[in-house]
Amino acid sequence: MRARLARFAVSAAVIGAALLAWELAVRFGYLKPYQFPPASRIARGFVELSTTGFPTGVSIWSHTLVTIGRVLQGYLAALVLAIPLGLLIGALPFLDRLTAPVVVFCRSIATLSLLPLVIVWFGAGELTKIVLIAYGCFWTMLSNVIAGVRYVDPMLIRAARSFGVAGIELYRTVVLPAALPRIFAGARMALGVGFMVIVGAEMIGTIEGLGALIMEARTFYRSEITMIGMLVIGMLGFAISSGLAGLERLLLPWSGSLDEVRR
């Protein structure tokens, strides 16, 4: 506890020192304030963002909510599709071998490279962003569900079979629970992918959302607002991934594998 406190203090001191050095470098003219807005200017920008908003009327909170809403829609759609499909493919080894190259290839396609195509198909509106997020999350989730179901420790399957458990009952009582940690890891990775994609997708064809905010602020030479947007995106990602880790500890208290799948 004491060691943790000390480490925290050191971290805070380092970050504080870095901010101070930055502030001083700007004051003495080593860094241009337009390119490196100092902490004081960022703080003023934050007040503006949370009251009048940027562009006027759209506060940082509504940008954040819009982004979260988009990610969640795409993410949940992907989960709803990928989990049942992955459970099915994983259960049938032949189906897995048949589809494996397609899954691998679709997963290698950089999600954002689909942007022009999806715009042609669905226009430049909301649906396009959600489809892109869903695409990215889907393949990550699908390959993890398949792997989770297929690579269950054979020892556990043997132990269950020694009690005469087989077929669908074996799948339900052993394969499924054994695959849960991997499925959970997939869900966390997929959410990371979703956040990655949304930032890119929001840079084109919208003025709402955090990705749009940081891009829009740049065109108005408001780099401090860009930085605030980046920090909010970072904190959001961090909070959600810690939240999911906590949820996993709560739902799968038996799984000690959390540290291994952390990254």
């Binding site: 380092v14 930085m227 980046m230 995106i233």
Partner: peptide
């Protein structure tokens, strides 16, 4: 001790979010 806090602070920001700043 010096490098870690700075890296951990910036790591959660997805690389794409750096695009506007990179242009600046």
């Amino acid at each position: 001790m010096i490098a870690r806090p700075l890296i951990e602070l910036l790591r959660p920001i997805p690389p794409l979010a750096w695009i506007p700043l990179a242009i600046i």
